[in-house]
Design a protein around this nucleic acid. Structure first.
Lengths: 126, 126
DNA sequence: AGCATAATGCTAAAAAATCAGCAGGAGGCG
DNA sequence: CGCCTCCTGCTGATTTTTTAGCATTATGCT
């Protein structure tokens, strides 16, 4: 539920932070599509901090911002949200869409690892 | 890109429409979390229609609303967006998160079908 | 020291999203 | 008919989001 419920810009920033980890304001701004002014980015971060989504620490004479909720948890939460809202809670359908979208870039090795993950899940299931 | 870029309420409505297909205003409202007034829902739909995300047709003496972009396309687009923004473009990581989140509900049959999908992708890859 | 650069703190305005209200039309039913 | 219910068309207000500006401080460099 973390990412859903945020505004457009807020989400944009959170996605950047989850991708890159820990960044100063200027770097966040550079990653943004149609980046607004430096001040605007800072305001967004201030709001996100008030809401408890990010925290900052001083480093190298400036602030670096990072998510409060760990990336893994946020990712799982986002996948779950996607699965329930658009795929009728069917993991299978998600995999189908995923393979469809990513097929071009998929190497045999990646496919093997995915198969292994599923095999492992089967073991645990049983 | 369709769903990203929408506001909170707009997304909420689009998700409902993709889940349920084609609905009159009252039904959409009933599906909404913290549903606002009937008027508010209609305003949102009007805006979504102006932006080209939904269309409506008369049916049973009232309007039913539906997405303009087909569900499959929207789903693929959403998965892709999720994969690139939160998973560094790694389909593998998405599958890992998915299995983690859904593991409890996964039956052997579902896992088998997923494995089959991956096997099929391997064939086409080679 | 003097100046340019790059931060922050604080503030407020502009734009977009969200919400609600009222008038009017059509159907159902006593 | 008269009344109630459910819908639409239209409009405007409130709230949130998004943006920018200015003052100040610290650093590095000439």
């Amino acid at each position: 539920m973390a990412l859903a419920g945020l505004s457009r810009r807020e989400r944009q920033i959170m996605e950047i932070l989850y991708r890159r980890g820990k960044l100063p304001v200027s770097a966040i701004r550079e990653e943004m599509q149609d980046a607004p002014s430096y001040s605007a980015v800072r305001s967004l971060l201030r709001v996100l901090e008030e809401k408890g989504h990010v925290k900052h620490q001083a480093e190298d004479l400036k602030y670096v911002y990072m998510p409060v909720v760990h990336a893994d948890k946020a990712r799982r939460s986002a996948v779950k949200h996607l699965m329930t809202t658009l795929f009728g809670d069917s993991p299978e359908q998600v995999v189908a869409a995923l393979l469809d979208v990513a097929s071009k870039r998929l190497t045999r090795e990646e496919l093997d690892r995915m198969a292994a993950m599923i095999e492992k899940a089967r073991q645990e299931e049983k």
